[in-house]
Write a protein that binds this DNA or RNA. Sequence first.
DNA 1: ATGGTCGCGTAGCGA
Length: 264
Amino acid sequence: MAMTIAAWNVNSILARLPTALEVLKAVNADVVCLQELKCEDGRFPRLEVEDLGYHVETHGQKTYNGVAILSRFRLSDVTRGLPGDEEDSQSRYIEAVVEAPGAPVRVASLYAPNGNPISTDKFQYKLRWMERLTAHARGLLRLEEPFALAGDYNIIPRDGDADDPKSWEGDALYSPEAKAAYRRLRNLGLEDAFMQADGRDGQYTFWDYQAGAWRRNHGIRIDHIFLSPQALDRLSSVTIHKEARAMDKPSDHVPIIARLETAS
DNA sequence: ATGGTCGCGTAGCGA
C-alpha cells in the first residue's frame, strides 16, 4: 500500500474550478493540500470536490489566502490557523490527521507569506511566520509520528531551484533570511521530500504569468513537502505535475506529489 | 523595458 500527498497553490479555486477538477482527477492523490483558495469557507465548491471522492476541510477567507486539505480518508483533529500569534487573521494554515487504516499521517496545508517588498513589514511578517512554523514543527516532532508540512513556502532554497537566479536577487523569495528559515526547518530534523527523492536542479513548481515565463521556462521551485523522520522512512518518490501549467486558464503553480509506502 | 499578467472586485493591491 502507498499514500500520495500533493501540494498545489490553485490561485483561486472558483476562478479555476473546471481546470482544478481536471488537475485533481489527473493527479489522483490520496491527500491534496490546496493554497490560495481566495474564498470564504461557504463559497468553497465542496460538492464538486466531494464528488471526486474527497473529504474536505477548509480554512478560507475573503479575497486572499485560504488553505484546504482534501483526503480520501477521514480527517480528524482538525486545527485552523498557525499557532503563535492570536492577532494573525490571515488564513494560511490548516492541519489534520489523515486516518488511513493502520497508517495515520498528520498533514498540514500551508501558504507562507510572499514577503515582498523586503523593505516593508510584509518581509518581517514572512520571517516571523516562518519562525512560528518552525516552533510548531518542533512541537510536532516531539510526538515522534509521521507528518507532512506541505504547501507554498515562497522560498527558493538553492540556485538550482531557479532558471535564472540572478533575476531573483533582491526578492524576498530568494533572500538570505528566507533561505535560512528553510534551513532551520531541515536542521530540526525535517527533510524536503523533493531533495531526498530527487534533488535535481531545474525542477520547478511555479512560473509567473508575466513576460512569457512558462514559454521561456523561467521557473522556480517554491512549493515544498517537508516530512518528519517517521514519514521520510516511507518516502519512495516525488513528482512534479508540470502538465498542469500548460492547460487553459492554468494556476501559476503546479502540484508536487510525494509518495509514501505503508506497511503491507 | 522599474515593464509584463493574472485574480479580486470594479480601483488598486497582492503576487
